[in-house]
Design a binder for these strands. Structure first.
Lengths: 178, 178
DNA sequence: AGAATGATTAGAAAATTGTCAAATTACTCT
DNA sequence: AGAGTAATTTGACAATTTTCTAATCATTCT
């Protein structure tokens, strides 16, 4: 991934594009390119070395000159290949949770409480993240927190107890598991 | 051409690549992206606006949110399309001269004086660029300048006079036409 | 109309990067 | 070995760009 960004940065410079276009036409060497572009050899060398270490150009010596040439295969890929991040490794379970959550939450609000127990637990666990373990909460407090996600805080609150995520004693609630 | 460079510059930034990868997966909005990337909404907005004005992303409002989405066609082109400069408009005569010169000069040295008059004139005119109009040169001086290009400065010097590029009076030479 | 919320802009600080002049290195040719 | 030539490195400077904070703007909801 890192190399893709490096390649893009490399290509995103006017001088380097000019150099590449010269090399697209024919192999060349530092001084000649410098002359054609009205820049100093030092500058051209700086760019060529940068591109060489990224594998964009190759160089070989001929007499006094370092002949630079293009590594043309690089330019065949579609742009899409360069911007796409390699898939992060994420286990199937995580992916499932993510899908469930993105299905039932829209813009951070719970659209509907899932009927399937497994999905419902995932959704409730997400809401439970708002509570800290070891802390005691009053009922009003619990309601307010849940209300951020859904109108019907009563149902949610009851469900959280039912599936063992929270516990209650009289008017006091607390988180059991994250 | 200018737009190609702009597009490359746009893509050559880590944050913007991150944003594009999020949008590749699903449309999203400023705050959410900011949260996912641990940056401020101002920063994300800066990047999105930049990409929008380049046509890389589109946006539309939905409730409180500005939903940004990708303009996916852009990414189909091969990289080659982005680096290649559009052909400069160059008249046929110029192109002919260029071809003749690149054939007879190698690494800045004249390999051989063309026998064809037309080609010879082109080559001589190229060498004549080293002289300034209106200036007087001694013979040694003329020889030294010509010698940069070819061993046999005498022949070249004689030819320059013969085809009317330079004039001579006694030991003094000067350029007639460029 | 007013409160709330997300998006955008303005201004400033920090980081990155392209360029050059001058010095050094690497190589070629006698 | 030494002279000559092109390439490269170094250090400094200038220009550009990313990011943030704070303030403002535009919508939506009550």
């Amino acid at each position: 991934m890192k190399e893709k960004l490096e390649l893009l940065k490399l290509l995103a410079d006017e001088t380097r594009l000019d150099i590449l276009n010269i090399l697209l036409h024919e192999d060349s060497y530092v001084e000649k390119i410098a002359c054609e572009l009205s820049l100093t050899p030092a500058t051209i060398c700086y760019h060529l070395k940068k591109m060489e270490s990224a594998g964009v150009v190759n160089c070989s010596r001929s007499q006094f000159y370092m002949i630079y040439s293009l590594n043309r295969e690089i330019f065949d890929k579609p742009l899409y290949e360069l911007i796409k991040k390699d898939e992060p490794v994420i286990d199937a379970n995580e992916k499932y949770k993510k899908d469930v959550l993105s299905h039932f939450f829209k813009y951070g609000k719970l659209v509907q409480l899932p009927t399937q127990r497994k999905k419902r637990e995932i959704v409730l666990a997400e809401i439970a993240k708002q509570f800290k373990i070891g802390q005691k909460y009053g009922e009003t407090e619990v309601n307010e927190i849940i209300h951020q996600f859904h109108e019907d805080h009563c149902t949610i609150r009851r469900e959280m107890i039912a599936c063992g995520i929270m516990a209650r004693e009289k008017e006091i609630y607390w988180l059991i598991k994250t």
